[in-house]
Amino acid sequence: MTFYINARQTDSVCKISGSLRQCILHYRNNWSELVFLCIGTDRVTGDCLGPFVGQKLSSYSGTVFSVYGTLFQPVHALNLTDIYQHIQTHHPNALIIAIDASLGEKKHLGYVTIANGALHPGAAIHKQLPSVGHIHITGIVNVSGVLEQLTLQTTRLSTVIFLADKIVQGILESIPLSKTDFKQIL
Results as ranks from 00 to 15, higher is better:
residue 108 H to R: 07
residue 90 H to G: 06
residue 56 K to Y: 01
residue 24 I to T: 06
residue 69 G to Q: 03
residue 41 T to L: 05
residue 18 G to S: 04
residue 112 V to Q: 15
residue 46 G to H: 01
residue 80 L to K: 09
residue 35 V to M: 07
residue 115 A to D: 05
residue 18 G to H: 03
residue 47 D to K: 01
residue 32 S to H: 07
residue 103 L to K: 08
residue 87 I to M: 09
residue 83 I to R: 00
residue 112 V to W: 14
residue 107 K to N: 10
residue 72 F to T: 13
residue 90 H to A: 09
residue 34 L to F: 08
residue 44 V to N: 00
residue 85 Q to T: 13
residue 27 Y to G: 06
residue 46 G to L: 00
residue 36 F to S: 00
residue 34 L to T: 05
residue 49 L to S: 15
residue 72 F to N: 14
residue 25 L to D: 02
residue 82 D to H: 06
residue 48 C to Y: 04
residue 33 E to G: 12
residue 51 P to H: 13
residue 23 C to V: 01
residue 65 F to L: 14
residue 47 D to V: 13
residue 106 K to Y: 12
residue 68 Y to Q: 05
residue 41 T to M: 04
residue 91 H to V: 03
residue 26 H to T: 14
residue 112 V to C: 10
residue 119 L to K: 07
residue 87 I to V: 14
residue 99 I to F: 03
residue 107 K to C: 08
residue 49 L to Y: 00
residue 116 N to V: 13
residue 42 D to Y: 02
residue 73 Q to V: 03
residue 83 I to W: 03
residue 17 S to C: 07
residue 76 H to N: 11
residue 50 G to I: 11
residue 29 N to E: 03
residue 79 N to W: 06
residue 19 S to E: 12
residue 64 V to Y: 04
residue 109 L to C: 09
residue 64 V to K: 05
residue 72 F to W: 12
residue 40 G to W: 04
residue 46 G to Q: 00
residue 46 G to C: 08
residue 107 K to D: 10
residue 78 L to W: 08
residue 66 S to E: 07
residue 61 S to H: 09
residue 34 L to N: 09
residue 95 L to N: 14
residue 66 S to R: 02
residue 71 L to V: 01
residue 57 L to D: 00
residue 32 S to C: 07
residue 47 D to G: 06
residue 23 C to W: 10
residue 55 Q to M: 13
residue 112 V to F: 14
residue 63 T to W: 14
residue 46 G to V: 09
residue 37 L to T: 00
residue 21 R to S: 10
residue 116 N to L: 12
residue 40 G to N: 02
residue 36 F to I: 01
residue 78 L to E: 00
residue 22 Q to F: 04
residue 83 I to Q: 00
residue 52 F to C: 06
residue 85 Q to E: 09
residue 54 G to T: 10
residue 25 L to A: 12
residue 21 R to I: 01
residue 82 D to E: 10
residue 78 L to P: 06
residue 89 T to C: 11
residue 77 A to P: 15
residue 98 A to T: 02
residue 42 D to K: 09
residue 71 L to N: 08
residue 41 T to R: 01
residue 30 N to H: 03
residue 88 Q to A: 11
residue 56 K to P: 05
residue 101 A to F: 14
residue 110 G to I: 06
residue 94 A to Q: 05
residue 74 P to N: 03
residue 38 C to F: 06
residue 101 A to M: 03
residue 84 Y to S: 07
residue 54 G to D: 11
residue 104 G to I: 13
residue 27 Y to C: 02
residue 83 I to F: 06
residue 106 K to I: 12
residue 105 E to G: 11
residue 31 W to C: 08
residue 73 Q to N: 05
residue 66 S to Q: 15
